[in-house]
């Protein structure tokens, strides 16, 4: 057949991105920069929770934030008003960020004086889960109004998360949201995920979350 051969590949479609993400993680380890990838549906509270987090850290860690809003700088300005270094990432309409876009973002942010870099990923529960960004840890926010069955409908994102923050606990009285059932649903998809109920509005649970984050940053910075 005019010189064609069949190469058995058996590689993930995402293999190239996975490789680039791993390279980025190794470089971040050397630079002692901790990168957190923060994911959720639109409006679950990423920006509000991040503002609270920066406030609660109270200067203990130098924070840099990358905002991946599709087409506005509203979130970036909010974060800036809380005193963190911030840049706006241009996703060009893409519904997720990959390792290369994250690398470019980190370069634009400048990580020389940053200990904790946070990527506010595009609001979407599907593709951010498939693309490793090179982050050290993946966090996701599930907000109470979205329902306790989300882990059953979007299994992949829950399976890649190290920590799931259940936000907007202040509105629990108004929704049929069963915290126990939600935790059980998350554990079915990912027995290792840490689950922390929080409220970005009242500040409930923020200490537990910030405690987890500081521990992880400390571990990462050890040689």
């Amino acid at each position: 057949m005019n010189g064609f051969k069949v190469l058995q590949v058996k590689q993930s479609v995402f293999a190239d991105n996975d490789r680039r993400a791993e390279e980025l993680r190794q470089e971040l380890k050397k630079q002692r920069v901790f990168l957190l990838n923060l994911m959720s549906s639109p409006g679950a509270g990423k920006t509000t929770l991040l503002s609270r987090t920066i406030e609660a850290l109270d200067g203990k860690l130098k924070v840099g934030v990358m905002e991946a809003d599709i087409d506005s700088d509203v979130d970036a300005r909010t974060i800036e008003s809380f005193g963190a270094k911030v840049i706006q990432l241009h996703t060009g309409g893409m519904c997720h960020l990959d390792a290369d876009m994250t690398r470019q973002g980190l370069e634009a942010l400048g990580t020389g004086d940053v200990e904790l870099a946070v990527l506010e990923n595009v609001g979407n529960l599907v593709c951010p889960a498939e693309f490793d960004t090179g982050a050290v840890k993946n966090a996701m926010i599930l907000s109470v109004p979205e329902g306790d069955d989300k882990p059953l409908k979007y299994p992949l994102i829950f399976s890649v998360c190290d920590v799931v923050l259940i936000n907007k606990t202040d509105v629990l009285p108004y929704f049929d949201f069963d915290m126990e059932k939600c935790a059980a649903n998350i554990r079915m998809r990912n027995p290792k995920a840490k689950i922390i109920p929080v409220c970005a509005r009242t500040g409930e649970g923020i200490d537990a979350w910030v405690g987890w984050l500081c521990d992880e940053v400390t571990k990462w910075k050890k040689p």
Binding site: G3, V6, L7, Q8, V9, K10, V13, F14
Partner: peptide, 17 residues
């Protein structure tokens, strides 16, 4: 449920020269 198969997208073969 534990997923046994059909969870990913894979490059199986490349016909090339």
């Amino acid at each position: 449920l534990e997923i046994l198969e059909g969870n990913d997208m894979i490059v199986k073969e490349i016909v090339c020269r």
